[in-house]
């Protein structure tokens, strides 16, 4: 059996996905990023392979593609492809009706317009500001003294979100701390944070143009409170993918590995 792997080395987590020649997902793994991107990639792929019934090693992969910010450092990968392309290809592979993708990762945020074949037609990115990224939510979670899942659940309880006026993540965190100390309802503050991030994301995705189906990938896609605010703001329901949204970039890399091995571009 020929296997293809994609390793997505992000700023916060490393992800690996392994697929077979038929495009079936055979294994995947997510772990926190180490300092060395190659260590992260090897570790995540090795652990993914360890989940499979047979003993496979990285060297058994017919082709490996690296993606994410650390992709250039992966000496064992056959090639590297930008995470923008990989998220687009991965999302389209899971649902070929997808035409717009929002990817919110640990330290950046992107919106992509897809061609009918799933490749990128246009994209915009915010890679210069942590506001509206996973790193921002981590900071806010610390202010609430809770993990992200609890924070997300808390925000869903709100009926009256408080407006967060600061656009900058540093000042927004200060504003949240002030609101907490003023004993404002925590769920309303949490929902306000979600709404502020959703607004930023909406302005980004509107720049590439919203064509349905629209989906969200990356670690922040797991934030149900954010998704709710985005759907309310955009007035459309986002397509839910059949795979953990955090793995979509790695899946796209694996799919491209399979296609490139076949000589498809």
């Amino acid at each position: 059996m020929k296997l293809f792997a994609g390793c997505d080395v992000g700023s916060t987590t490393g992800k690996a996905v392994v697929i077979n020649e038929a495009g079936d997902i055979m294994a995947h793994y997510i772990l926190p990023s180490a300092i060395d991107p190659e260590v992260t990639a090897i570790e995540s792929l090795s652990r993914a392979l360890a989940q499979m019934a047979s003993d496979y090693e990285i060297a058994d992969m017919a082709r490996v593609i690296g993606t994410g910010y650390g992709r250039i450092e992966l000496s064992f990968a056959h090639e590297n492809v930008s995470e923008i392309t990989c998220h687009a290809v991965g999302a389209h592979f899971l649902d070929n009706g997808i035409r717009t993708v929002i990817d919110i990762g640990g330290q950046d945020c992107k919106a992509m317009a897809l061609r009918d074949d799933g490749y990128v037609l246009d994209f915009v990115m915010n890679d210069k500001c942590a506001a509206g990224t996973g790193r921002f939510f981590e900071g806010i979670g610390r202010a609430f003294n809770m993990d992200l899942e609890s924070f997300s659940r808390l925000s869903l309880e709100s009926k009256n979100p408080i407006a967060i006026s600061s656009q900058c993540s540093v000042f927004a965190e200060s504003e949240v701390v002030s609101l907490i100390s003023q004993r404002k309802p925590p769920m309303d503050i949490a929902a306000g944070v979600q709404k502020a991030v959703a607004k930023r994301t909406m302005s980004l995705v509107r720049r590439v143009g919203i064509v349905e189906k629209l989906t969200i990938t990356g670690g922040c896609a797991k934030n149900a409170g954010l998704l709710k605010m985005l759907e309310e703001g955009l007035g459309i329901e986002m397509a839910r993918l059949s795979l953990d949204a955090q793995l979509v970039g790695a899946l796209g890399a694996a799919v491209l590995a399979m296609r490139h091995e076949r000589g498809q571009e």
Partner: peptide, 12 residues
């Protein structure tokens, strides 16, 4: 470079 790689399919 970002555009040529992601949209025009040029290798980095």
């Amino acid at each position: 470079a970002n555009f040529m790689e992601n949209v025009m399919g040029e290798k980095k």
